[in-house]
Amino acid sequence: MPEIFIAFSYKDVLFLLQGALVTVALCAMAFSCGLVVALAIGLMRTARRLRPLQWVAGAYVEVFRGTPLLMQIFIAYFGLSILGLNLPRFVAVSVPLILFTGAFMGEIVRAGIEAIPRGQWEAGWSLGMTYGQLMRYVVAPTAVRIMIPPSVGFLVQLVKGTSLAYVVGYVELTRAGYIISQSTYATMLVFTLVGAIYFGINYPLSLASQRLEVRLKRHA
C-alpha cells in the first residue's frame, strides 16, 4: 500500500515557525502603512467644518468594518482581476490589510482627537495658531497617549486577521497549520501548536497594552 500519511516531525515545527514569520511581516507592513491612512481618516472624521470629508471618511470606515476581511482581500485580488486590473499578489494582499487597519485605527485616532476638550482648541485658535500648529502642539501630545493602548490592542486583532492572506496564496501561520494537518492528519496537535505560537506573539503585545494603559492613568 502506498504511503499517504506522513508522521509529524520537528520539520513541521520549523515550517510553522516560518509561517509565523510571514504573519509577523504582513502584520508589521499593514500596521505601519495603515497608521498613515488612519491618521488621515481620523483628521477627516473630526473636521467639523468640512462635511463631505466627514461623509467620505465615515463611509470608508463603515465599509471596511462592516464586511469580512476575507471578502476584502478576495475582491482586491480576484474581483479587480476580473475587471481587468491584475494587481501583483503582494499589493493585492497589502492594500486591503492596510485599508482594514486604516478603518479600525482611524476610529482610535478620532477618539483620541475628540478626547481633547473644546476649550483647548478654542484657546489655540485665539492664540492665532494654524490647524497644523494646533494639531501638533495642542492635540497630538495628549491624543497620542490616549491612542497607544487601544492601538496595541488592535495589533493583536491584526496578527490574527492576517491569517486570511491564505486566500491569495500566502503560507502564514494558520495556512501552515492546515498544510501540516493535511499531510499528517494530526489536526489537534498541529492546531494546539498554532494556537500556542499566536499566543506567544500576542501575549506580549496585550501585556504591553495594559502596562501602557496603567501608566497613562497614573499620569493623567
Binding site: I4, I6, K11, Q182, S183
Partner: peptide, 18 residues
Amino acid sequence: GLGAPPFGMYDADKKPTG
C-alpha cells in the same frame, strides 16, 4: 488541491505529491 490523499497531498518536505 493538496488535501485529498492519495490524489493530492504534501510529502514530508511540504512538496506536492500524489
